[in-house]
Lab assay of single mutants.
Amino acid sequence: ALNRGDKVRIKRTESYWYGDVGTVASVEKSGILYPVIVRFDRVNYNGFSGSASGVNTNNFAENELELVQAAA
Rank of each mutant, 00 (worst) to 15 (best):
E28Y: 08
A52G: 12
V8P: 01
G47V: 08
E66A: 04
G31Y: 12
N44K: 12
G54C: 14
G54F: 07
I37Q: 12
V36I: 13
S26Y: 13
G5Q: 02
I32A: 13
V21D: 01
A1S: 12
R9L: 14
Q69I: 08
N44A: 09
G50A: 09
R4C: 11
N63Q: 09
S49D: 15
K7A: 05
V38S: 00
D6Y: 02
N63I: 09
G22A: 03
L67N: 01
A1T: 14
L33D: 13
V24W: 03
A52R: 02
N59K: 07
F40G: 00
V21Q: 02
R12F: 03
A72H: 12
E28W: 05
E64K: 00
G31I: 08
I32D: 14
N46Y: 06
Y34F: 12
D41Y: 06
D6G: 01
N63M: 07
L2I: 10
V27L: 06
E28D: 14
L65N: 04
V24L: 01
G31C: 13
G54Y: 05
W17H: 03
S30G: 11
A1M: 10
T57A: 09
G22N: 01
W17P: 00
G22I: 03
V38K: 00
V55L: 07
A25F: 11
E62N: 04
V68N: 01
G19M: 12
V8C: 05
E62A: 12
A61L: 04
V36D: 00
I37M: 13
V43N: 06
F60T: 00
N3C: 14
D6W: 05
G19K: 04
V43D: 09
P35V: 11
F60K: 04
P35Y: 09
E62I: 13
Y34V: 03
G5A: 03
L67S: 02
G54W: 05
S15I: 04
V68D: 01
R12V: 08
L67W: 04
Y18R: 01
T13L: 13
V27K: 03
F60G: 01
V43Y: 15
T13G: 05
E66Q: 07
E14L: 07
L65A: 00
K11S: 04
T23K: 04
V38H: 00
V8Y: 00
G19N: 11
N44R: 08
E62M: 14
Y18M: 03
I37N: 08
P35W: 12
V36G: 01
T13H: 09
G19I: 04
K7R: 11
F48W: 08
A61D: 06
S49T: 13
Y45A: 15
L67C: 04
G47I: 08
G5H: 04
V68L: 07
G47C: 15
R9N: 03
V68P: 01
S15L: 08
S26A: 12
E14S: 12
A61S: 10
R42T: 08
E14K: 05
R39G: 04
N46E: 15
V8G: 01
S49W: 10
F60N: 01
Y18G: 00
Y18N: 03
V8M: 01
S15D: 06
L2R: 00
Q69E: 14
A72T: 14
K29D: 11
R39L: 15
N46T: 11
Y16T: 04
N63F: 13
L2W: 06
S15P: 00
P35N: 14
F48P: 15
G31T: 11
R12K: 09
Y34H: 13
V8T: 00
Y16P: 07
G54D: 06
S26D: 12
S30L: 07
A72S: 13
L65H: 02
S51F: 08
D6P: 01
D41H: 09
R39S: 09
L33P: 13
R9V: 10
N3H: 13
V38T: 00
W17T: 00
V55Q: 09
S53N: 12
Y18L: 03
S26F: 14
L65W: 01
A71G: 07
V43S: 06
V24R: 15
A71F: 11
V43G: 06
S49G: 12
E14W: 08
N63A: 11
D20R: 05
V24P: 01
W17N: 01
S26Q: 10
N59H: 11
R9M: 09
I37C: 14
S30K: 13
L67D: 01
V21F: 04
D6E: 01
A25M: 15
F48K: 06
V21E: 04
I32S: 14
R12T: 07
S30H: 10
R4F: 07
S51E: 13
L65S: 03
A1P: 12
E64M: 01
Y34M: 08
N59T: 09
S51Q: 11
L67H: 03
G47F: 07
A1R: 15
R9W: 05
D20C: 09
P35T: 11
G22F: 02
R42A: 06
I10T: 05
K11P: 01
A1C: 14
A52E: 14
A70P: 11
S53L: 13
F60D: 02
G5D: 02
V36N: 01
K7Y: 05
S53W: 08
I10R: 02
T23S: 04
S51L: 11
G54M: 06
R4M: 10
A72Y: 11
G22L: 04
E14D: 14
A72L: 10
V38G: 00
E66L: 05
N44Y: 15
S30F: 07
A1E: 11
E28F: 08
K29I: 09
E14M: 07
G22V: 03
F48A: 15
R42C: 10
V8K: 02
L65P: 00
E14Q: 09
N3W: 07
A70Y: 12
E64Q: 02
T23A: 03
A61E: 05
S51I: 08
N59Q: 08
A52I: 09
P35A: 08
S53T: 13
S15H: 02
G54I: 07
V36S: 00
R39A: 10
I32E: 14
Y18P: 00
A71L: 09
L2T: 02
A70H: 10
I10L: 08
V55H: 11
S15G: 03
K11W: 11
D6F: 02
